[in-house]
Nucleic acid binder design. Structure first.
Lengths: 210, 210
DNA sequence: TTCATAGATCTAACAGTGCTAGATATTAGA
DNA sequence: TCTAATATCTAGCACTGTTAGATCTATGAA
């Protein structure tokens, strides 16, 4: 592909290109703003455009469709997260691990709408509905199993409920990322990583039996 | 609330009640089937009903709306998961931890559509789209930080990429559940649990420097 | 057997969705 | 001042979840 020598873009052409970029950014910001205020299922093309006092089809001058806009927003989120993580990595070596994790957490909860877009959690439809009884049963089963394992080792869980939530979160994190093809190497590698980390994570939940 | 003595429901009344329950179950199964075959955003009321050769409004005879049906399906999923977990808990104490985790994993990937409904991952819109460059940057930042921490301890990561994915998955799992109000005790407790488990999880990724 | 009623199911419609085609303003540069 | 490019809009399509009202069908009593 040969790059033809451009005849120096005219002054107003440059201005319009800049305005295009600004419009594009405004659309992204509008979508994010609506999501922040009313959740992702309030985000419609008409409302995004309306917030900037434009009509709906304007969006297609800047994005291939709604989904493309969301993907772009996901990229924005990851860029921001990378920034913050590298900032947190400047903490002293002893504090660094906590700083990184704390920053990740803070980022997610400072901009839940972004975090949701980044991780395909659009809507979070069940967040409001109370946890169904069946879910509690599943959790309880899990907790009892963990306790039985501890007991078999002549120990007990320091905080049974906490241990349950912690290990459950880990399993869910592994599955969730693997299912979204977010772990390089495919599901087999993901599964192995999960199983490998399981033992130390569990062991840390134990204390000697009284 | 006083329970009035019912005049013994007639025979056909009982039959119709049973048929109602069957229809209800069929609707749930139809929704799940479509999701399994074509993903959750192919699941529309008309298609659910159509699969049973009914017209759309039939759904409202059994559920308050589409979202209610999904919530019901989530309950079905948790019930099934609880079943499998309690089965896995019958493994010998040494194998039990692995059995539980493996069962959780197997359940999720045997019925991804159910797992998605249970965890508000409807659509998984970005699963197909390749990971954006920004996400890779964020991962890399994270990995470099982890390596620097290891180094500061006079050790190194046995598998840097694996350690990165593992810890990332854990953070994501914690945030994701906390954000969906799935961890009792609120976000503060969730955050504490996460930070507490961080150290052992990280330590397990180390090996002495060569 | 006849008939009013309760129940099941449908058709038609509504407002809202993402998206597209075609018309219409607005601006740029000759 | 005029032509061409750009920006933007209006109108519409096929679809979504949902509701109202009509229409069948089966029930249990007279």
């Amino acid at each position: 592909m040969t790059t033809k020598a451009q005849p120096e873009p005219s002054i107003s052409r440059k201005r319009r290109e800049r305005e295009r970029q600004e419009m594009r950014a405004s659309l992204l910001e509008a979508a994010r703003g609506i999501a922040a205020e009313e959740g992702w299922n309030a985000v419609t093309i008409r409302r995004i455009a309306g917030r900037l006092e434009y009509s709906a089809p304007i969006l297609y001058q800047h994005f291939a469709g709604k989904e493309q806009l969301l993907i772009e927003l996901m990229a924005v989120g990851f860029a921001e997260l990378a920034d913050r993580l590298s900032e947190a990595a400047k903490a002293s070596p002893e504090d660094r691990l906590t700083a990184i994790a704390g920053t990740y957490w803070a980022f997610a909860f400072a901009s839940p709408e972004l975090y949701q877009a980044m991780n395909g959690l659009d809507g979070v439809p069940f967040g409001t509905a109370e946890t169904p009884a069946e879910a509690k049963t599943a959790f309880r089963t899990f907790r009892v199993a963990l306790q039985s394992i501890a007991e078999a080792r002549g120990a007990e869980l320091a905080d049974p409920a906490g241990a349950t939530d912690t290990l459950w979160a880990f399993l869910h994190g592994c599955v969730s990322l693997a299912m979204a093809s977010r772990i390089a190497g495919g599901t087999d590698r993901a599964r192995t990583l999960m199983l490998n980390a399981l033992e130390p994570l569990f062991a840390a939940q134990l204390r000697r039996s009284a």
